[in-house]
Amino acid sequence: MSAEASSSHIAPGGATSGLTINLHPLPILNVSDHFNRSRLTSSGSTRIIGALLGTESNREISIVNSFELVIGSPDGDVDMGESSTPAAQSSNSTSLNTTFFETRKDQFKQVFPTLDVVGWYTVGEKPTAEDVALHQQFTDIIDTPIFLLFNPNHPASSQTLPVTIYESALAEGGKDDSTDGKFVELAYGIETGEAERIAVDGVSRGGMGGEGEESTVVANLTTQRNAIRMLYERVAVLLQYITGVINKTAKPDHNILRQVSALVATLPTMDAREFRDELTTDYDDVQLTAYLTTLTKQLSALSDYADKHNLLHPPPSDDFGGSHGGSRGGRGYGGFEYGGGGGGRRRR
């Protein structure tokens, strides 16, 4: 379908329902992984769709996770285990396998009880007629689903994400106008937690230098360093703000001050005797471990030095006559015993 034809399914001036969309990194990574696996393992064009998991509070939706879906007949005659094969998904089919959808939704509900299906995703540059038909089927299952479109041909030089989020355009009076096959684009923001930021940073960096255990150790240390650095930067921002409020150079925000006070209240008391005893014990253990490590290294170095010294300067032999003499306690020149245990004679 041409770009002009596909753009006919977007309502440029359509009214939205005023939703606030917060998109987490995990669904983006899942959709990208789904597309790459399908492209590498399927011989032909395969329809890629999936469900979006998240939370909805008032008019705010957070998209947290996702799972793959199957295109097939609604009565469930497609095998669930063949969801990634071309036989299980047909690019010409616009029928959602509702049996597979309900089964997978129940499975994810057991693992993530706080998450609900809030929409669906597919891959493409613009919404198509097939997308309109699928969205209508999701509308029959989910109240006001959102539609995420992942564009694999997004220019690499662009500073935006290859993701666009839509909802059904609303007609005058706020009624759903999805029967006319129109979508309206929604603005969204990226929401991440500390663990997500660290994970995304690790994915963006790719493999670390080195091989084997060295690479793993370097990657773990780098991750810890980045986490500590981010924590330090955020603490520095809070400290700068509190200092500004005290010096009356910054306007006090009581909401922020309450959150800072609640955060400080969760920290352990620094001047308590139990805290100092535990800190002293941990400090002593660390110092003792460092001393033992240093001592072990010095002993190892001393042992190596002794071995090398013995090789270069062997101790003098007690055998007389070198190779011509006998062994200790044996007979030397002239038949005299030497080196014996008691009263033996040595020939000069």
Rank of each mutant, 00 (worst) to 15 (best):
G207C: 02
M208W: 02
G209V: 12
G210V: 05
E211A: 09
G212Q: 11
E214G: 03
S215G: 02
S215V: 14
T216N: 03
T216V: 06
V217W: 10
V217G: 01
V218S: 00
V218P: 00
V218L: 00
A219Y: 02
A219I: 01
A219C: 05
A219K: 02
A219Q: 10
N220M: 03
N220G: 02
N220H: 07
L221Q: 09
L221I: 08
L221S: 00
L221N: 03
T222V: 02
T222A: 00
T223K: 04
R225G: 08
A227V: 14
I228L: 03
I228P: 00
I228Y: 00
R229F: 06
M230G: 08
M230C: 10
L231Q: 11
L231T: 10
Y232Q: 10
R234Y: 02
V235P: 05
V235I: 14
V235E: 08
A236H: 12
A236D: 14
A236N: 11
A236M: 14
A236R: 13
L238P: 11
L239F: 01
L239C: 08
Q240M: 13
Q240L: 08
Q240D: 12
Y241V: 09
I242G: 04
I242N: 01
V245D: 01
V245K: 07
V245W: 00
I246F: 03
N247P: 05
N247E: 04
N247V: 07
N247Q: 02
K248F: 07
K248P: 09
A250M: 07
A250N: 10
P252E: 13
D253R: 10
D253T: 12
D253W: 15
D253F: 09
H254L: 02
H254T: 01
H254S: 04
N255D: 05
I256N: 03
I256C: 07
I256S: 02
I256M: 12
L257K: 02
L257D: 06
R258P: 10
R258S: 12
R258M: 13
R258A: 07
R258C: 06
Q259I: 13
V260H: 05
S261L: 13
S261I: 09
A262G: 00
A262P: 06
A262W: 01
A262C: 01
A262T: 01
L263N: 11
L263G: 10
L263Y: 13
L263E: 03
V264P: 05
V264T: 15
V264N: 08
A265Q: 07
A265R: 05
A265D: 12
T266W: 09
T266C: 13
T266N: 06
T266P: 09
P268A: 03
P268E: 05
T269N: 06
T269H: 07
D271N: 06
D271H: 04
